[in-house]
Design a binder for these strands. Sequence first.
RNA 1: GGCCCCGUCGUCUAGUGGUUAGGACGCAGGGUUUUCAUCCCUGUAACGCGAGUUCGAUUCUCGCCGGGGCUACCA
Length: 421
Amino acid sequence: MSIRVRFAPSPTGALHIGGARTALYNWLLARGSDGTLVLRIEDTDRERSTPENVEQILDALRWLELDWDEGPISQSDRADRHREEIARLVAEDKAYLDDGAVRLRVPEGQTTVEDVIRGTVTFENETIDDFVIARSDGSPLYNLAVAVDDRDMEITHVVRGDDHLSNTPRQLMVIEALGIDRLPIYAHLPLMHGPDGKKLSKRHGAASVQELREAGYLPEAVRNYIALLGWGYDAESTFFTTEELIERFSLERVSRSPAVFDEQKLRWMNGRYLRELDGAELTRRVESFTGRTGLGPAVEISREKMQTLSEFWPMAGFFVEAQPYDERAWAKVMKDGAVERLGLARAALAELASFEPEPIEAALRAVVEQTEVKPRKVFQPVRLAISGTTISPGIFESLAVLGRDTALERIDATLARAKDS
RNA sequence: GGCCCCGUCGUCUAGUGGUUAGGACGCAGGGUUUUCAUCCCUGUAACGCGAGUUCGAUUCUCGCCGGGGCUACCA
């Protein structure tokens, strides 16, 4: 029998990386076994669930390229089905009315959860009160709905956050009361914490998938990174293609302890993914991210300097339009004869037969020889002139991409400004 | 408070009844170098504490401590 898993987010907010990881693991399980992934929206709390949040979650999943086979199914749409079971439980006296709400009768004894990740976890039933399965307005509650839906949807593996472990015995009791004879296999993933060790929240920086996207991360890098938050294949491997992830992922190797999201490491990994992309693809992504076109040559010479897509524009925006001078950079560079050297560089560049990186380099190095200074004394004024700052892609390549006319124009503007001041 | 889960470098992790406790990020230093990066090299740093079992515990058991979750007519 092939596996059927579900990702069942509650649409009470954005999808953060903890939820994204749960979705990923479920997806890997389904894709790795010719199984089925059901997307179910757990919106039995109408007060806190919004259509906007649902859409946001779907967007996040699509961006991460995690597709689903069934759904999205809105749990609230199945309320009639849930009510039917609640009525049956009441009729069978397994649940009872309490001031209009319906409570399940918690039986005597113990309830044991067999968890792939946690092992056997036993709860004494006496520590669990008769819990509410329907509000007094008749609307079904989570613990009831989950049990019914997982059964109706024939879910074989329930893979979810550890915060659900304590509720699992309640769901098991509902399942028992309902007379369901087949139990899903449970796997409770360790929670994700913020850098302060607390439960992940908006305060912990780029915690939502949407924020990661806006920060310029690549979906494949995010997938690889979060896969490693709570799972490891061996002692050495860090980079996994999606195919490798699908092939190698297993619940048995999921760790039990909570993980902390470390954006530094994601940045590093994202940079590695960025540099692996071929020129056309990287350009496509940068253009899509910045909303600009014609970026190809600039992207090509900037690639090894970027960790995220968002770093392109601050560093290479000058290729598209002149940037204001960074005054600190100006003060640092435009002194001790920099103006003269810039003038010499300008003249050398103007005479070039071919405005390509190699001849440009030869010309500028000739100026270095001539003036008997360190190379940077010549290059930095030129860099400042064309980019407005001291940081840019390689100066020879930058000049070539910018083109002679624009380059000379900007150098002239810089010389004029230096003269005025 | 009660119940449950968790505890290896700062972070993500590998690992074993006997290992120089491995890798990665970060950080520090060095190399390459036109800036910033990339890249390469070196270094830094961990088994929470206390008992018990054992010839020997990071590893097994118990206790403690610490962190987290649940305990809702939230999910």
